[in-house]
């Protein structure tokens, strides 16, 4: 066992970092696209159905097929990491988009009404009222997206993008379960850690609503 780690330990660490980079970059892009898009949908609700539908369809494409579709595209196909990041971003869109939209829509309408009536500008309404009140929803979306993407990123190795999937694919090809586990266990741990960390932030952002009357 120690022999296995001395042989593969460095590689596992390297691939874990690569895995983190692929997922992290995709999450960043997805958040940059989906949060503003979700906000925009709350202001133009007529678009909500088609846009959420589109994101839903993206979500249903099997991941291996998605990587395959992107492979022949110019510029994207040149580097495997680009393909992986674009595909992962596409998968991360829906949860973030949907939760941003629902989170803002779920705010007590009387709160938004008063904020407008007191003369807050659209921007002030967004940053002082809507985003803070929707924050725990948006973070829940980010959390779902992250956990999904950590899993899907293992398949990116199929197009040569690296990450922990590489160990899994190699292990499968050479019928070496140790290698499969060396890829799968760190990937699972990454997902769990990301889930727990984002869960903590989410709880911290939650707005108290319990009605406890003081004497």
């Amino acid at each position: 066992m120690s022999e296995f780690f001395s042989q593969f330990g460095g590689e596992i660490a390297e691939l874990t970092l690569e895995h983190l980079w692929l997922t992290g970059a995709a999450m960043l892009f997805a958040a940059l696209i989906a949060i503003p898009a979700g906000i925009w949908l709350t202001r133009s609700p007529a678009w909500a159905k088609p846009v959420l539908g589109l994101a839903n369809i993206l979500q249903t494409i099997p991941s291996l097929a998605m990587f395959g579709f992107l492979l022949p595209l110019p510029w994207l196909g040149d580097r495997a990491a680009r393909i992986a990041i674009v595909a992962l971003t596409a998968y991360a869109l829906l949860p973030i988009l949907r939760n941003t939209y629902t989170g803002i829509r779920a705010i007590d309408p009387s709160v938004v009404e008063v904020a407008r009536a007191l003369g807050l500008t659209d921007w002030q309404l967004l940053v002082k009222v809507q985003l803070p009140l929707a924050a725990s929803f948006i973070l829940a979306g980010l959390r779902t997206a992250t956990v999904t993407c950590v899993g899907i990123a293992t398949i990116a190795a199929a197009v040569g993008a690296g990450g922990l999937g590489e160990l899994i694919f190699r292990g499968v090809a050479s019928v070496d379960n140790r290698l499969v586990l060396a890829g799968a266990v760190p990937a699972a741990l990454l997902a769990l850690v990301a889930d727990a960390a984002l869960g903590l932030i989410e709880r911290w952002c939650k707005v108290p609503t319990a009605r406890v009357a003081h004497p």
Binding site: D108, S110, V111, V114, A117, L118, G119, T121, V129, T209
Partner: peptide
Amino acid sequence: NLIQLRRGIGYVIQETGLFPH
């Protein structure tokens, strides 16, 4: 000007609409 107008008029409703955060 909508913003100026509204800032010059107080508004109180039954549901209060207090900002919970």
